[in-house]
């Protein structure tokens, strides 16, 4: 028996909207730790790792570990039927091939049930080692989204270079080149506008713009984004959800042949 109750359906809606275009089908794993998902995109270039911690739910009952295969587009369709301030309850009985989403309006005067078919998904779970990254940038999530969108209109790849002074995003395309430098800055009115650099060594890596743009669909989840880079690792683009957990996107770099 699984029963998870979350007061803000809006959060789950934003989570689904941020990953449904990157990953088609995925297993949601439910354990004492929380409700989690790990999945690669179809070309195995990017990986999504989501954790919604059990203690972030209003009610969390998961009698034993369970993995539920879902089509994320269909799940997003059902969640779009909830209002952001509805309470959502996710329910599944042991051995059932369906999951139920129940939405309750804040005044309890509207209660809706949506039952969705589960699917068998044969997916490989990857071990992601805890790593020390050579460079970590924390910056405004909306600024990062703007930069990815702007550079994506000019070139297919973005070079991200971190130095002690700041982070530089560069691209090159048929029409020309573009460079954006965000200097480290903590003297800001709103803390989410700060740009913080933690760097052991300068790092410069090249990534496909379209994946970075896809990751920024998670921008509504967090004020700041954390970008972690090392030469021998995929980049991690992380959106932390206050008290609930995180959405992490891993992207393998492009390497000079």
């Amino acid at each position: 028996m699984l029963e998870l109750r979350l007061t803000q359906a809006g959060l789950l809606k934003k989570v689904l909207e941020s990953i449904k275009d990157l990953v088609t089908d995925a297993n949601f794993d439910c354990s004492a730790t929380g409700f989690s998902l790990q999945a690669m995109d179809s070309s195995h270039v990017a990986l999504v790792a989501l954790l919604l911690r059990s203690d972030g739910f209003e009610h969390y009952r998961c009698d034993h570990n369970i993995s539920m295969g879902m089509n994320l587009g269909n799940m997003a369709k059902m969640l779009r039927c909830a209002s952001d301030d509805d309470t959502v309850t996710i329910k599944a009985d042991d051995g059932s091939d369906t999951v139920t989403f129940m939405f309750e309006s804040p005044s309890q005067d509207k209660i809706s049930d949506y039952e969705m078919k589960l699917m068998d998904i044969d997916s490989e779970h990857l071990g992601i080692p805890e790593a020390e990254y050579q460079a970590i940038v924390r910056m405004s999530a909306s600024e990062f989204a703007r930069i990815c969108k702007d550079l994506g209109t000019i070139g297919d790849t973005v070079i991200i270079s971190v130095t002690k002074e700041g982070v530089q995003f560069s691209t090159k395309g048929d029409i020309g080149t573009a460079n954006i430098i965000c200097r480290k800055n903590t003297a800001v009115d709103k803390k989410e506008e700060a740009t913080v650099i933690e760097m052991a060594e300068p790092v410069s890596l090249t990534f496909a713009s379209r994946y970075l743009i896809a990751f920024t669909k998670a921008t509504p989840l967090a004020g700041q984004v954390t970008i972690s880079m090392s030469y021998d690792m995929p980049i991690v683009v992380e959106y932390k959800m206050e008290t609930m957990g995180y959405m992490r996107f891993y992207l393998a770099p492009k390497i000079e042949e």
């Binding site: 270039v45 990857l126 995929p234 393998a252 000079e256 042949e257």
Partner: peptide, 14 residues
């Protein structure tokens, strides 16, 4: 030209 690496080049299955 650039070679696109894959996630599996870095992370292994459990």
């Amino acid at each position: 030209s650039c070679l696109q690496k894959k996630i599996l080049d870095y992370f292994e299955g459990d």
